[in-house]
Design a protein around this nucleic acid. Structure first.
Length: 574
DNA sequence: CAGTGAGCGAGCTTCCGCTTGACTT
């Protein structure tokens, strides 16, 4: 019998089915050990010695694994194919060796990117050993996070009473919220006017907007006062109209890629009103029931089986007109993506949402995943976009208007997964606006000249979901921790959630101001990205992990000492 | 003499990332 170790029990169950009787698959339930949450867990002065501690729950798991190992003649470590996965294998192996349970039994490491029979069978034929440089990169990451957090936090306690914590991830997330708030406070709304006309041709009304005045194209903010707008309105009212040019252009809109953790959290937030943590709780249940693939992922790729099933489901549901000739392949754009899993998708595309039993939230989330997955493989929507240039003549000014309309000539994926209003383009409403059939030389008549006052708007506050999206873009945090980071910022009273937007508390803003002033390097938006570059070199064997840590610690500790002993003026203390 | 209050010292907080139950409500 061969003993296989993976991290999650649901994954263990699936793999057990694929591998059959000669194997026993057990779950480690995540990292089996961690640094104790107290001082001295990493000792820079003792060559960065790290002390590991097995918690009570893991102790039980490890003894189960140990007992199974007694009956087994081989150990196969099959945790995720990324840095943290390699570390889990290393931790498990290190504990088993420490207990002298391994004897002389062979140990190997296998990795697969999708939990499918083909991928696992293939992986089993290519075993390797633990990737030590990758484990080293984990050790450097783990130690650095500990040293930053457990050094900066006490400095904060001392200098800013009431503050609670700082860290590589949470402090940057907090900074994003605070900087956005400052932008909003600095923002001065600017007045501008839109000018246009409601015209009529062949008994059908349509709207045209001001395009140019005296031969110069007008920009959004060009008409800044009521008097200018009214002058233009009078000129339009006095004029006559002629269609000078009509341009019809077919365009297409492509579907979105399948869900990652971050994009699922965003869409569940905007379309269903779920918080990221609620989304993850529901997704976890769907995963445990075997209904969806793993929900903590940064990959947009689907296993070939998934793509194939989606394509067959499209034909069955919509007919072959909705199926593109070739499968769509998506590329991950997120920085720092590890792509240890595939995208989040239904495990069975023929499991229609309406057949899913269970509560309403589960049904709604599954329906969103099902639709997004299916849509991601459907044909593009085809849209005919018409642009009509209309000159205004017989009036005091040289004015041109432009009318834009578009008609969906083939819905494609839009039949299933609509584009959210205002989601990614300002002129989104024009997608559905239809123009009458216009031809050059037509003389539409004026129904009404239109002017309207507007003010520019400040940037919006972040929601939990949009902050996570931003963090993902910066490569900060991981799918397994996005929701947790949102909770930390609130528990520390650094931010509060109001109408699903994040508002920084005074305490959060003071902490951010302090960190920006005295530890700017460590809360820069690119700090994690720079760290990741070093970790890449490390995992390629081009750097030694202790050298990376030593370089970091030399600068960091000297700087901390300087700030820690600096006598702040009394007024600093709140 | 009892109550008050100044002053002192001890103990506590804290990171990120991987994973579920075992808790309570």
């Amino acid at each position: 019998m061969k003993l296989v170790i993976v991290e999650s029990p649901a994954k263990a169950k699936t793999i057990n089915n694929y591998l059959g009787k000669d194997y026993e698959v057990l779950a480690s339930f995540g990292h089996v050990r961690d640094l104790p949450a107290k001082d001295g867990s990493v000792l820079p002065d003792e060559d960065f010695a790290m002390s590991w501690e097995v918690d009570a729950a893991s102790r039980k798991r490890l003894s189960d694994i140990g007992n199974a190992l007694k009956e087994a003649d081989e150990l196969i470590l099959a945790t995720d194919p990324d840095r943290e996965g390699e570390a889990i294998s290393w931790h498990v192996l290190d504990v088993l060796r420490g207990k002298k349970l391994l004897k002389d039994k062979p140990v190997s490491r296998v990795v697969f990117n999708a939990i499918t029979k083909a991928a696992i069978t293939e992986a089993m034929q290519h075993p390797r050993q633990i990737d030590e440089p990758l484990v080293d990169a984990y050790l450097a990451r783990r130690a650095l996070d500990y040293l930053v957090g457990f050094t900066l936090s006490p400095v904060l306690w001392r200098k800013l009473p009431g503050s609670r914590s700082a860290g590589r991830v949470q402090s940057v997330a907090l900074r994003l919220v605070c900087e956005r708030e400052s932008e909003i406070e600095r923002f001065r709304p600017q007045e501008y006017w839109s000018v246009g006309a409601r015209l009529n041709e062949k008994s059908k009304s349509f709207e045209a907007r001001l395009y140019s005045v005296d031969g110069r194209k007008t920009d959004k903010l060009d008409i800044a006062s009521a008097s200018e707008a009214e002058a233009l309105k009078r000129a339009i009212e006095a004029g006559a109209f002629s269609v000078a040019a009509v341009d019809r252009k077919p365009t297409r809109r492509n579907p979105y890629p399948p869900f990652t953790t971050s994009s699922l959290q965003q869409d569940a937030s905007s379309r269903l009103g779920f918080s990221p943590s609620r989304t993850m709780q529901i997704a976890q249940r769907l995963y445990e029931e075997g209904v969806i693939t793993y929900m903590r992922t940064d990959a947009v790729q689907m296993a070939p089986e998934g793509i194939d099933e989606a394509r067959r489901a499209i034909v069955k549901t919509f007919g072959s007109d909705y199926l593109p000739e070739k499968p769509r392949i998506y590329q991950t754009k997120a920085k720092n993506a590890q792509e240890a899993h595939e995208a989040i998708r239904p495990t069975d595309m023929f499991r229609h949402p309406d057949t899913l039993r269970g509560d309403a939230d589960k049904h709604r989330l599954y329906e969103l995943i099902w639709k997004r997955t299916l849509a991601s493989q459907m044909r593009s929507a085809e849209i005919e976009r018409t642009t009509a240039d209309i000159s205004v003549f017989a009036t005091s000014r040289d004015i041109a208007l432009r009318a834009v309309g578009s008609v969906v000539t083939f819905p494609g994926f839009l039949a299933l997964y609509g584009v959210e209003a205002g989601a990614d383009r300002e002129d989104g409403d024009e997608d559905s606006r239809e123009l009458p059939p216009l031809a050059v030389g037509d003389r539409p008549r004026l129904e009404e000249a239109l002017i309207e006052q507007h003010f520019t708007q400040p940037p919006p506050r972040y929601s939990e979901a949009s902050l996570i999206k931003k963090m993902e873009e910066l490569g900060i945090g991981r799918p397994s921790t996005y929701a947790a980071t949102m909770s930390v910022l609130q528990e520390r009273n650094y931010v509060r959630l109001e109408k699903r937007t994040l508002i920084p508390e005074d305490r959060g803003r003071i902490v951010t101001a302090f960190l920006e002033s005295f530890f700017n390097r460590y809360v820069e938006y690119g700090f994690t990205a720079q760290l990741e570059e070093q970790l890449d070199l490390l995992s390629n064997g081009k750097l030694a992990w202790k050298d990376v840590l030593r370089q970091f610690w030399t600068d960091f500790s000297a700087h901390v000492e300087e700030i820690r002993t600096f006598a702040f003026p009394r007024f600093w203390m709140p």
